[in-house]
Design a protein around this nucleic acid. Structure first.
Lengths: 216, 216
DNA sequence: TCTCTGGCGTACCGTACGGTACGGTTCGAT
DNA sequence: ATCGAACCGTACCGTACGGTACGCCAGAGA
């Protein structure tokens, strides 16, 4: 396994996926509870098989994160017939997807795992999570933003900056507080406010980047 | 040690502070390298002393995080003679402080440690970091915001929301990317852009909450 | 039916690390 | 000078866990 980062789709047999599911469940249930023995017992397989399939503990961890992160595919947004209304709906949808994903238990677990991993000179998991989380949204949002600009509905010079501002307006301090285990932010609490937050963030984004905004 | 959370100042002897410094250095150098043996060796003290002073590994970790986090005291901002210019300067200063702290190596380490800790049903470190980081800024920024509102320089209904938007505009995706070890964000790279980012964020904040803004 | 392969379960090994014990040393108080 | 407290250094113990070895079984193919 070692240093090879498998960025692209990798097909796992159903049995292997069952193992990965077990591994993720253990991660979610109890952060660092991912011991090889625990995974083997949970998945009713032998440790030897784990090592054969995934190389070592890090390989199993990487495969799990990779596999799960890639599963977080957000719905495509219709880009045809762009007008003020559909653009706003698209952006609102992105905000909703982003918030929903980020506040999910699986996402929190994956991010925590990756952060922990990054604290030990290893950055592969961080890149995977980043790549499949924020960057995935960015890749799909940017064309929309640029289409909006071309249609004179938005105004900005750098779509990168526009995206990052969007991210900030939507996520605010929610993600870091969830990662730090802030009890004041139970997930249900957050979930109940998602719609309002999404609307507020979208309003603010258009206030800053809408065609009629007096852009600073 | 156990469950007691020491929220307030706790005086450590110089010798103890030397130990905590050693512990922090180890954390920064190599995330999880905080073994009791390593700390003892680095600080030239005996493990027995560590256990006597801090109870157990978690106590040492907590004391270290607590002590360091409390050291991140940002300069007070002058609140007298509030006008458009001084308000803007204050807010810009908050943005600068926030970005500077968050992108610092110590802060990244403390946050990573706390996140890792939170991944194991323990949330005390998370609360400590939260309390001394974002919340500390919030406590000091809110009065300024409210003073600005009273002076008709700002417009908002909830100072809490205003603060969180400020946080989002300033931090954006920088913190999570640093925590995840994104190589594309070397710290020098970030540091060089702090001034521009601070200015942009402040502009955006005033665009949204300034008295003349058409607030959504 | 024989055999071979893949995989389960378990036992096992080595190591790293949390935590404890203890002898020796320094230093201040009496 | 003596005593005792604090503390250093080191050796030690127990356990948890990563990783390996091996015996066994089931099922596919000849």
């Amino acid at each position: 396994m070692a240093l090879t980062i498998k960025v692209n789709e990798e097909t796992f047999t159903p049995r292997q996926q069952a193992v990965l599911t077990a591994a993720l469940d253990l991660l979610v249930e109890n952060g660092d509870g991912l011991t090889m023995t625990a995974v083997a017992r949970r998945a009713s397989c032998s440790k030897e098989t784990l090592y054969k399939w995934f190389g070592d503990r890090d390989g199993l961890l990487t495969a799990t994160v990779q596999w799960q992160a890639a599963k977080v595919r957000m719905p495509q947004v219709d880009r045809s017939g762009l007008n003020a209304k559909t653009l706003r709906a698209s952006i609102e949808q992105f905000a909703r997807d982003l918030l929903t994903v980020i506040t999910g238990e699986v996402s929190i677990t994956l991010n925590r795992t990756a952060v922990t991993h990054a604290a030990q000179e290893k950055d592969s998991l961080g890149m995977i999570v980043l790549e499949n989380g924020p960057l995935a949204i960015r890749r799909r949002l940017k064309p929309i933003l640029e289409a909006g600009r071309d249609a004179r509905l938005l105004r900005f010079t750098s779509s990168e900056d526009a995206y990052r501002t969007f991210f900030g307006l939507v996520v605010r301090d929610v993600q870091i507080r969830l990662l730090l285990g802030d009890k004041a932010l139970t997930q249900s609490n957050v979930a109940d406010n998602i719609e309002a937050d999404v609307k507020a963030a979208t309003d603010q984004f258009f206030a800053l980047y809408g065609a009629k905004a007096t852009h600073a």
